[in-house]
Write a protein that binds this DNA or RNA. Structure first.
Lengths: 142, 142
DNA sequence: CTTTCTGCAAATAGTTTGCAGCCGA
DNA sequence: TCGGCTGCAAACTATTTGCAGAAAG
């Protein structure tokens, strides 16, 4: 799991910098309740409420950067905008089942899927960032 | 696999209509080379080249409709726009490994993942539309 | 004949970008 | 010090929508 120090190390390794904004955003995700995920707008609102406003452009730039580093995972849980959550390693790694009508989202775990994902990436010589099984379905209510 | 008749039946069942545009678009996907997938723009260009132009709004409306019916699957292979391909049943069902830097995309199959997907949906009482494992990674070249 | 569908043009919204000044290493 | 980073405002672009006429059932 990341903290300010490991984030700084990882950023500096790649020629990037640790800024208060980046640290703040990482902390929001670390403190985020399990099973929750935020859109850029959500983050903006949350940071404003916490009295630590960060410009929306920086928010977009930061979540994209962290997703490319493998720190966050980018989720397509609803049409039209992306959500982000910490990219947690085994055994916290999980997947999503989404109702395409009402957007109800259910998390579920599968070691098997994670294994298949890492094996496939390894076999082809790719460096794995994220592996997510998305099940699109219609829930019993819809 | 769908053809004009089964498409018509399925549409009519839900109070929708079979139009020449819908049939044309379905046929493009049926004839599409294995492993290919189209964005809305791609479809627009292709249909124009084939001398069967369809307005971009109708293209968007149609692919979305067919994705919600489970006929097409919506793929997020590159930033900024979606791609579509036929949603084929076992044993043609497959998944994607994507390099987040150069967007190189590799298809792979996994019966195990498909099984996990259908079991999970079934267990929760959801009607399965699509189940896709997306592996985000960095390819050896990048 | 009724209701859905299409095409057009205009609107929308999420996201990106140029730039000037700021600040981490 | 210096090159990356932020905030602002403006730009962009994929996608959606309102509407009038066309057409499927």
């Amino acid at each position: 799991m990341y903290d300010a120090n490991s984030l700084k190390a990882e950023l500096n390794d790649r020629g990037w910098r640790l800024t208060p904004q980046r640290e703040t955003i990482l902390n929001v995700f670390i403190d985020l309740e399990k099973g929750k995920h935020l859109s850029a707008e959500d983050l903006d609102t949350l940071l404003q409420e916490q009295g630590k406003p960060i410009s929306l452009s920086t928010i977009y730039r930061t979540v994209k950067l962290m997703a490319r580093m493998g720190i966050l995972r980018e989720l397509e849980l609803a049409e039209g905008h992306k959500h982000y959550e910490l990219n947690q390693p085994y055994p916290h790694h999980h997947h999503h089942l989404i109702c395409v009508k009402c957007n109800e989202t259910i998390e579920f775990k599968s070691d098997a899927v994670l294994k298949i994902g890492s094996k496939t990436a390894k076999k082809l010589g790719f460096h794995l960032l994220d592996c997510q099984l998305s099940i699109h379905a219609i829930c019993p209510q819809c």
